[in-house]
Amino acid sequence: MYKVKSIENLISQLTKLPGIGRKSAQRLALFLVRSSKEEHQSLIQAIDQVSKKVKQCAICGNLTEDNPCSICQDEKRDRGIICVVEQPRDVIAIEKMGKFSGLYHVLGGVISPVKGIGPGEINIKGLLERIRKGKVREVLLATDPNPEGETTAMYISRILSPLEVEVTRLAIGLPAGGDLEFADDFTLSQAFEGRRKFTWSN
């Protein structure tokens, strides 16, 4: 334990960050202590801006400063297709690939049968509302190619089965495993091109 109370406090705040253990937090804290007042201010400001400006898009659930987000507002994007992803970071990965021009729906999580996370805890209701409004002809399920992503895809396809909309799934599929955000652009664009019809039960 450091005897300087404010440094100790900073360390314990930093340990809350993902992937930061006590040792790394200490290293970061001591680095910050040594940096200039100006550098402190710009870091504080950046955090302050994020906290004040960033919110969830009321339509797609992605993180945005404008509401609706720039993708939902973009008239050039194909409103007939919605790509369903787990997290905002997946939108970033797909946009970086640059071959998808439809809209997104961010679930903000994933159904986990082993952790008891059910469909009520992710944003499926919002997706249903968007589809019921019509105009959507295809829902492309781009949840991760692991068992939880697959379970989520099966659940959504089951919920959508009474509606008149085509449900497709990225062509990565089990048993690939892994997270979508770490897919390279080539794998990802192949997965988009090769997407296929998807059903929830055999």
Binding site: P175, G177, G178, T187
Partner: peptide, 16 residues
């Protein structure tokens, strides 16, 4: 590395 799509652990360390 198990969360990388092409990791050797990705297909073998899935739940169930």
């Amino acid at each position: 590395g198990a969360r990388r799509l092409k990791s050797r652990f990705a297909p073998t360390t899935q739940i169930i």
